[in-house]
Amino acid sequence: MEVREVALAPGEPYELRLTGRGARGYVWTWRVTGDADAVTVSEAPPAAVERQGEPEPPLPGATVERVYVVRGRVAGRARIRFAQVRPPYPEEAAYDEFVLDVVVG
């Protein structure tokens, strides 16, 4: 599990890219602890692969990078735990985890 710390100003965004494994049924979920009001988290739409100037969807079974935007709101410290899980199997341990510690000042 990787842990990263970032410092943001109120209103400042931070883009986090995580490798998706949607073809295997995994999705990224997140949970904010600490000063939960200090940040917002949203998922950006998946990017299409550009071939010869035209955007195309990714090939079936390909790993797809997921982009999450963390935005500072008010001063505080928040911890965001991203976990890659398969929703139909909640008893399984997460396939991968990533922790982002955010200081908003």
Score class of each variant (00 low, 15 high):
6 V>I: 15
4 R>G: 00
34 G>N: 04
80 I>S: 06
27 V>P: 00
13 P>D: 01
62 A>I: 03
43 E>H: 07
36 A>L: 08
29 T>Q: 13
12 E>T: 07
47 A>D: 14
64 V>D: 03
21 R>K: 11
35 D>M: 06
9 A>F: 09
97 E>L: 09
20 G>F: 01
45 P>S: 10
40 T>F: 07
53 G>E: 00
41 V>C: 04
79 R>P: 00
23 A>L: 11
66 R>H: 05
1 M>G: 15
90 P>H: 08
100 L>H: 03
92 E>K: 08
67 V>E: 07
32 V>C: 03
37 D>E: 15
101 D>A: 10
46 P>A: 05
55 P>W: 05
11 G>V: 03
100 L>G: 01
71 R>K: 15
52 Q>W: 12
1 M>P: 11
7 A>N: 14
13 P>K: 09
2 E>M: 10
23 A>Q: 08
105 G>C: 09
67 V>I: 10
49 V>K: 14
43 E>N: 05
91 E>S: 14
54 E>G: 07
74 V>F: 07
77 R>C: 01
54 E>F: 12
31 R>T: 10
39 V>K: 08
44 A>T: 02
89 Y>N: 11
31 R>I: 04
80 I>Q: 08
26 Y>D: 02
47 A>T: 12
98 F>V: 02
64 V>C: 09
33 T>S: 14
33 T>C: 06
97 E>R: 15
56 E>D: 06
65 E>F: 09
50 E>T: 11
25 G>L: 04
11 G>H: 04
61 G>Q: 06
38 A>P: 02
2 E>K: 11
7 A>L: 12
52 Q>P: 01
4 R>L: 04
6 V>W: 09
54 E>H: 13
97 E>M: 10
85 V>Y: 05
13 P>I: 03
57 P>I: 06
27 V>Q: 11
94 A>L: 12
5 E>G: 08
33 T>E: 15
34 G>F: 05
76 G>F: 04
82 F>L: 04
6 V>G: 04
61 G>R: 08
76 G>Q: 05
76 G>A: 06
56 E>A: 11
37 D>T: 09
11 G>N: 02
102 V>G: 02
73 R>I: 09
30 W>I: 00
37 D>V: 09
21 R>L: 08
9 A>H: 10
37 D>P: 10
96 D>Q: 11
64 V>E: 10
13 P>F: 02
49 V>Q: 13
15 E>T: 08
71 R>V: 06
94 A>E: 13
90 P>F: 10
29 T>P: 01
15 E>L: 13
1 M>L: 14
55 P>F: 09
3 V>S: 11
24 R>D: 14
80 I>D: 01
2 E>I: 07
82 F>V: 01
72 G>K: 07
23 A>P: 03
